[in-house]
Design a protein around this nucleic acid. Structure first.
Length: 757
RNA sequence: GCGGGCGUGGCGAAAUGGCAUACGCGGCAGGUUUAGGUCCUGUUGGUGGCGACACCGUGGGGGUUCAAAUCCCCCCGCCCGCACCA
């Protein structure tokens, strides 16, 4: 193969020149698996709640400020991860570990969005049931992410397709269905229970649309009036109906010729009766409350543009909330056989409405002029249609017909962050004290994910949250106080003379170009993936370098919010850094811990250490992991030049590396004599007195060009610097028109201009 | 078209008004090694010079300032979003 061919154990044993205890992939693998086991065994990343089922151990962290750290959860792909996927997860893990070491009580949960089209499509493609494939795929991802050493509280993991979860998605739908928006309540209005609207009509406090007394309206008219106010309602909506595929399609799935992109079937624009959510009622609040959020400006702008200009012509339309597919949340709605168009909400006690098991759940092609048939129309339970059900809704057992649409992909992701707070609660969506403890005052303290969800997911989740806020379930007006968009990992792709992609891993760098199999190839930029043959598996990186090196490399590539190009060759740099760090503390020939020197730090080392602590703290706090790594590499290089590393340097260095490369740091920390995990060890504090320079070297410019430098006491002010300058032989004293002195920074000597002739 | 963003060594990048290129890759030289690889040390923007140095240099042009990669204007190039769609 290529440069990505990894050394075998046999080859390693033949290599006698390599020190046996050098930090390499083999040693990293052993260290990492051992610490991952220990973290799991000790529940290192379990975050105790103040009350309830997960409150054990809360006393230990009771005084700490809480921090709710959250990743956009993924849908579990069947293909497995490439190294681009976990970039954001590594970033939040590094940050979470830093927060724990700076005295925060961190909640960092993780879960999977397992309902929806990607999961259903994968199941269809592989001929298996989605309930099976999502479990399998989640297990694959769970293993790959665990191998990265991510510090999640695994007890809180949720899957949106789990009935114990989607029971509450249905419960939220019922809150929406049983609410109406009162624009007169408060400055921008709020949602109120539908029962209060009924009471206002009945008492005459609120006039009916045509002015007749409420009691004079027929029962059906009363129902239609009420239903017309609900935040969830049925309406005729123009959709892309593709009979050939048996489903409605998104605009993107329809070609310019009006046919389906898949299969090239005709697509018809036609009105169909669909569930809608009245998100437009919240438009003004969704715009106004953006001002309170610490979000990237471009995401706020996208949301504002999406919702529309302020003050009335809102373009935003209500949210089409039903799908004709199988793999989604059933609606908790039935229809009376005698009145089949008016929806009836099920009571909370009848939740969850579980999705029936179906062996053939694929959409079925239809005739051109037929209506779409939801997949659930074919579901049968014990020989009878799942749709037909006998229920007692208060007036004795009657026959009803179930709603056959399911909710869209987005439903579960609109509120999952609340369920992490109380995942086992079967009495409530979330226990109010837990909701208040973790969410107040700004909601999730940091939410990290890709910018591709800048509009829809974040807008829909804000809408759900505001409904829950109006209903008194959520106590903050917004779900996500701070948002951060991590960048994407791109990778070089290469094409040969015929324009065909060649495996990027087997391309080698040549002076002035690139070659594959002895032939020159052309480099092209592209997203990492199968089609460009440039995917890199994290498993290969573990085999070649270990997880700590992979983490460090991804964090060192550049700013977390920027796109960056993957270059496997560059990993060697951070791997060498970890090898040097290891060698400071471990004798790579014997495997013995080198006894750290006991003497105090020399002033220059102390100064560098404390300056490094200062900047690394600032960098971590601002998610600038790339520059933090540069400072730590410099400090390690300095330590490498010492005969023996004093404990007072080795320990803070290991602690500062720990958020980035936690496994090797734990191992070294233990070898330095600390039996407990360093997860909750205080992050080093800088001593300003030790960080201070006695003197500084100031560059002296003459007319803007640096000519020489002077050394002055660090505390020197304008006067002292001017005096030091006057004594320097390079100072052009007779021609100075102006002297600009910026203490601690620079001096600029402005010369007199010769008189124009 | 409209809106937004970006442009710095061979490459990823750092510097947000104050010595441009920290840190890493790659390159070059040396050490270790039978050799290659690994590892270690030094060096590495361009041009000129033996050299101390000098000049040029952050896409191009102009401006503000003692001082501009950074702030302003114009131009060029590239990227993203543009409405119910996962």
């Amino acid at each position: 193969m290529s440069r990505l061919r990894f050394e075998t154990m046999q080859e390693r044993q033949m290599d006698e020149s390599r020190p046996p205890f050098r930090y390499d992939a083999r040693l990293a693998d052993e260290i990492e698996l051992r610490w991952q086991d220990r973290w799991e065994r000790e529940g290192t990343f379990h975050s105790p709640d103040p009350v309830g089922a997960l409150s054990d151990g809360f006393a230990r962290v009771a005084g700490r400020p809480k921090f709710y750290l959250l990743d956009f959860f993924p849908y579990p792909s069947g293909i497995g991860l490439h190294v681009g996927h976990p970039l954001g997860y590594i970033g939040t893990d590094v940050f979470g570990r830093y927060l724990r070491m700076t005295g925060h009580h961190v909640l960092h949960p993780f879960g999977f969005d397992t309902f929806g089209l990607p999961a259903e499509q994968y199941a269809i493609d592989t001929g298996q049931h989605p309930a099976v494939t999502v479990q399998h795929n989640a297990a694959v991802m769970r293993r790959q992410l665990r191998r990265l050493g991510l510090g999640h509280d695994g007890r809180r993991e949720i899957l949106t397709s789990d009935p114990s979860f989607y029971r509450w998605t249905q419960w939220i739908f019922l809150r929406i269905f049983n609410s109406w928006y009162d624009p007169a309540a408060g400055p921008l209005g709020r949602a109120r229970p539908i029962a209060e609207l009924v009471a206002e009509f009945e008492s005459g406090q609120r006039p009916t649309p045509d002015g007749r007394p409420w009691a004079d309206l027929a029962a059906g008219e009363q129902r239609d009036t009420i239903d017309g106010h609900r935040l969830a309602y049925l309406a005729e909506e123009i959709v892309n109906w593709c009979p050939g595929l048996g489903t409605v399609l998104a605009d993107e799935e329809v070609t310019d010729e009006g046919r389906s992109a898949v299969g090239n079937y005709p697509v018809y624009r036609r009105p169909l009766r669909q569930w809608m959510l009245r998100i437009t009622s919240y438009a003004e609040r969704l715009v106004a409350d953006l001002d309170s959020l610490d979000w990237p400006d471009n995401v706020k702008r996208l949301q504002r543009n999406w919702i529309g200009p302020p003050g009335g012509p809102y373009h935003l339309r209500d949210w089409l909330f039903s799908r004709q597919r199988y793999w989604g949340e059933p609606f908790p709605i039935v229809y009376d056989e005698a009145d089949p168009t008016r929806p009836i909400a099920l009571p909370d006690e009848m939740l969850p409405v579980t999705l029936p098991d179906m062996t053939d759940f694929r959409p079925v092609p239809q005739d051109d002029d037929s209506d779409p048939v939801p997949a659930l129309a074919r579901a049968r339970v014990g020989g009878t249609p799942w749709a037909d059900v006998t229920l007692d809704l208060g007036d004795g057992p009657r026959r009803y017909r179930r709603e056959l649409n399911v909710m869209p992909q987005w439903a579960g992701s609109c509120w999952y962050y609340l369920r992490y707070l109380d995942p086992f609660n079967d009495k409530a969506l979330v226990d109010p004290p837990l909701q208040r403890y973790w969410m107040e005052p700004i909601g999730v303290d940091l939410y990290v994910g890709g910018v591709e969800h800048a509009v829809l997911h974040l807008l829909y989740a804000r809408f759900f949250h505001k409904v829950l806020y109006d209903a008194g379930v959520a106590s903050t007006p917004e779900p996500f106080g701070r948002l951060f968009n991590q960048g994407y990992i791109l990778a070089d792709a290469f094409t040969d003379a015929r324009g065909m992609y060649v495996p990027a891993a087997a391309v080698t760098r040549r002076a002035g170009g690139w070659e594959y199999d002895g032939q020159p190839v052309t480099r092209r930029a592209g997203k990492m993936g199968k089609s460009l043959k440039n995917g890199v598996s994290p498993d290969d990186m573990y085999d070649a370098y270990g997880a700590d090196t992979l983490r460090l490399y991804e964090m060192a590539m550049g700013p977390l919010d920027g796109d960056r190009a993957w270059h496997t060759d560059d990993i060697a740099g951070v791997h060498r850094f970890l090898q040097r760090l290891w060698r400071l503390i471990v004798d790579e020939n014997t495997g013995e811990t080198r006894p750290p020197a006991a003497e105090p730090l020399d002033p220059a080392t102390a100064r560098l250490l404390h300056q490094t602590i200062t900047t690394v703290r600032e960098d971590f706090a601002a998610l600038r992991f790339n520059t933090a790594i540069a400072r730590l590499i410099e400090l390690t290089a300095h330590a490498s030049r010492m005969d023996a590393v004093p404990r007072a340097l080795a320990e803070p260095l290991v602690l500062m590396v720990a958020p980035l490369a936690p496994h090797i740091a734990e191992e070294l920390w233990q070898r330095l004599g600390h039996p407990a995990s360093l997860t909750y060890e205080p992050f080093p504090q800088a001593d300003p007195a030790l960080a201070a320079q006695a003197s500084v070297i100031l560059p002296v410019q003459v007319d803007g060009k640096v000519r020489f430098t002077i050394e002055v006491p660090a505390s020197a002010g304008q006067q002292a610097i001017a005096e030091a300058l006057a004594g320097h032989p390079g100072y052009p004293r007779d021609d100075v028109a102006r002297l600009v002195i910026v203490p601690g920074k620079i001096v600029n000597v402005v010369l007199r201009r010769p008189d124009p002739v």
